[in-house]
Amino acid sequence: MEVRTIKVFTTVDNINLHTQVVDMSMTYGQQFGPTYLDGADVTKIKPHNSHEGKTFYVLPNDDTLRVEAFEYYHTTDPSFLGRYMSALNHTKKWKYPQVNGLTSIKWADNNCYLATALLTLQQIELKFNPPALQDAYYRARAGEAANFCALILAYCNKTVGELGDVRETMSYLFQHANLDSCKRVLNVVCKTCGQQQTTLKGVEAVMYMGTLSYEQFKKGVQIPCTCGKQATKYLVQQESPFVMMSAPPAQYELKHGTFTCASEYTGNYQCGHYKHITSKETLYCIDGALLTKSSEYKGPITDVFYKENSYTTTIK
């Protein structure tokens, strides 16, 4: 009895394709271990004539594949690729409408935090270190965002349907971005203890939790000093293409032309909904596939993004 075979390709990165001759009487799992086709788990399936010449994702289970996976995804987590594939199996079914010149995501599976993050990423200057993220990001900007969303979920250790947080998501993504040249110098002034300067680099240099107003941050924000008295913390120097200011959701007025974009969060910790506000020729609110415009805006804002380049204080 002759062994019926077909020729397929296996890959971990969709760049390096490895030619395989597979036995049609055995499952993919018996031949390769966990195997995925377009995100779908085909591990328990036997090869079919229609699979001839198709590319299958496999887990990096030998040295060659491990090197290829690390170079593309910059992670050695053995569960990463499987999590990416199972997320992709959902995100490829989502709709990605162009809204006001940006790629958004039609609401499904509690994905409003991903839509808000995706919209924000198209408006701030950011370059990702893992080629996987950078490639998928370019495709997302062009309207094909399924891979990018699935990668975000995998890097953030999230599953489809789980509630997510924009600030946490951005923080994970910033860790995989090139923020080497970003720098922030802060000064804390206390009447009792004097003053202390701190220099922050990388992710810490672009994120701040405690106030939404970048102007206020430049002037000074009140913080408790270690001595128990009130101290003032203010920005001395900022070198970065953008800054992200966050605070627990509270009524906040966004003035046209003073910011790049913002995240609105309605609801409580267990259950809520994100919308995205962007400042173009007027203010726009993007909620999944829905767009509304207004000249002014007041609502429960939790993150505001500002364009920056270089700032030095005039406070002496």
Rank of each mutant, 00 (worst) to 15 (best):
V243M: 05
I315S: 15
R139C: 12
Y84G: 04
G82M: 15
A150M: 02
L133H: 04
K298N: 13
A205D: 00
L59Y: 12
Q251A: 09
E215W: 06
G29R: 07
K92Y: 05
V166A: 09
Q222Y: 08
A140Q: 03
L235K: 00
E71N: 09
I105H: 03
T159G: 10
T120D: 02
W107Y: 05
T169P: 03
L81Y: 08
M26V: 12
T302M: 00
V304P: 00
K183R: 13
C149S: 06
H48C: 13
T159V: 11
I315Q: 15
T282D: 14
K229M: 12
D41V: 09
V22Y: 01
Y138F: 15
L114Q: 04
A154C: 07
Q216L: 07
D165C: 15
Q123N: 07
E52M: 11
Y96K: 02
E68N: 05
F217A: 15
T116N: 08
C225Q: 02
M26F: 08
G202R: 04
G267T: 11
F174A: 04
Q30C: 15
F259S: 01
K95L: 14
C193L: 02
Y73K: 05
C112K: 03
I15D: 06
E253T: 11
Q134D: 07
T302F: 00
Y265M: 01
T103W: 10
I6C: 14
T266L: 10
R139Q: 13
S279R: 01
P47Y: 04
L37K: 11
A205H: 04
H51Y: 05
Y311Q: 12
G161A: 05
G210S: 04
G257Y: 00
K158V: 02
C156V: 07
C193N: 04
H176N: 07
A136F: 07
Q175K: 09
Q134T: 10
C285F: 10
K316S: 15
E264H: 04
A136P: 02
V304N: 05
I152A: 07
H276K: 01
N187S: 12
F242A: 03
N111Y: 04
Y73Q: 06
D287S: 02
V236E: 06
A87L: 07
L88I: 04
V185P: 02
L212F: 01
I286Y: 09
L200T: 11
C112E: 04
S104M: 10
I15R: 10
A108V: 08
L81R: 05
T55P: 07
R141W: 05
K127F: 09
A146T: 02
V189K: 10
N14I: 07
A250V: 10
Y57Q: 08
C227R: 01
A205W: 00
Y208I: 12
L283K: 00
L235N: 01
I6S: 06
F148V: 04
Q270I: 07
T258S: 12
D41P: 12
Y208P: 00
Q20T: 12
S310T: 12
T292Y: 10
L186A: 07
M26K: 13
Y269G: 15
Y269R: 15
S294K: 12
T19W: 11
A146E: 08
A69Y: 11
N157S: 07
E68F: 01
K92N: 09
N129Y: 07
I301Q: 01
T292P: 00
T278C: 12
G143D: 03
L186I: 13
Q175C: 08
L88C: 05
C193I: 02
T75K: 09
T312Y: 10
K298V: 15
F217M: 13
Q237P: 02
G220K: 02
M170E: 01
I277V: 12
K298Y: 15
Q31I: 12
A289L: 07
T64L: 11
G288Y: 00
A146K: 01
Q196N: 12
G53S: 11
N157C: 06
L133V: 05
A87K: 06
A250W: 05
M207N: 02
L81H: 09
V188I: 11
V203T: 10
L173T: 05
T43K: 10
P241K: 09
M244E: 02
D109T: 03
Y28L: 11
I45S: 14
F217H: 03
Q123T: 06
E168D: 03
C271I: 12
A231Q: 03
A136V: 02
N309A: 15
E281C: 02
T198F: 14
V58K: 07
A132R: 06
E308F: 08
T43Q: 14
E264I: 14
G202L: 01
H256A: 13
A146G: 06
D165F: 07
Q134F: 06
P241H: 08
N111M: 02
T169C: 08
K275L: 04
Q31S: 14
T258R: 09
A145Y: 04
Y214S: 02
A117R: 02
T116S: 09
Q196G: 07
V67D: 12
G29Y: 09
L126E: 01
D287N: 01
T302I: 01
L59A: 14
Q270K: 14
Q251D: 12
Q216W: 03
Q251K: 09
C156D: 00
P47M: 04
G220R: 02
T120I: 14
A146P: 05
I223V: 15
A140F: 09
S104N: 07
Q197A: 07
G210W: 06
Y274N: 05
Q98N: 11
K233P: 00
C285T: 11
A205E: 00
F128S: 04
D63M: 09
T199H: 11
V58H: 05
Y73M: 05
Y306T: 00
L114R: 02
Q251L: 12
A154F: 02
F242R: 01
L254F: 00
T260M: 12
G257P: 00
G101R: 04
R141H: 08
L126D: 04
K307L: 12
S86D: 15
E253M: 11
V58A: 06
Y208N: 07
L37F: 12
S295E: 15
A87R: 05
A289T: 10
P47Q: 06
S246W: 00
I301G: 01
F259I: 01
Y284M: 14
G143I: 03
T75H: 06
L102E: 07
L59V: 14
G210P: 04
Q195T: 14
S310R: 14
L290G: 12
Q31N: 13
K219Q: 12
A289G: 11
E162W: 01
L151V: 05
V185K: 07
L254E: 04
P130N: 05
T11R: 04
Y57T: 11
L163C: 15
E253D: 10
K7I: 11
Q134A: 12
T91S: 04
M207S: 05
Q216K: 14
S50H: 11
K44M: 11
Y138V: 14
T226G: 14
P248H: 11
G53V: 07
V3E: 15
S181V: 07
Q196F: 13
K280G: 13
E125S: 08
K191C: 13
L118V: 08
E162V: 05
G39Q: 09
S213W: 01
Y36C: 05
M170V: 06
A231P: 01
D77F: 05
V203E: 06
H276Q: 03
N14K: 09
K93M: 10
Y306C: 01
P241S: 08
T302C: 10
F174L: 11
F9V: 09
I286T: 07
R83E: 02
T199L: 07
T91G: 03
Y284P: 00
V206L: 04
T313G: 11
K106T: 13
F56T: 05
S295D: 13
F242T: 01
E204L: 07
Y36D: 03
L102K: 05
P224I: 14
T258V: 06
G53A: 14
G33F: 04
H51P: 02
M244D: 01
E215V: 03
V189H: 13
G267P: 08
L291V: 15
R4Y: 13
D23A: 12
G257W: 01
I315Y: 15
F70T: 08
C190T: 00
L114T: 04
N89L: 10
V243I: 11
N157H: 08
C193Q: 04
H273D: 00
K293H: 14
T35R: 06
I152H: 03
K316Y: 15
L119W: 03
D77E: 12
H74L: 15
L102N: 06
H176M: 09
Y36F: 11
D63L: 07
K233V: 13
T116M: 07
G202T: 02
G53L: 13
L126K: 03
L133F: 04
A247K: 02
E215N: 08
P248G: 05
A69I: 09
L290T: 15
V42P: 04
C149L: 08
A262L: 00
Y96S: 04
T258N: 09
K127Y: 08
A154T: 12
K106V: 13
Q238H: 05
R139P: 05
Q122C: 04
E253V: 09
S240W: 00
I15N: 10
T120S: 10
E125W: 06
T19L: 13
L81F: 14
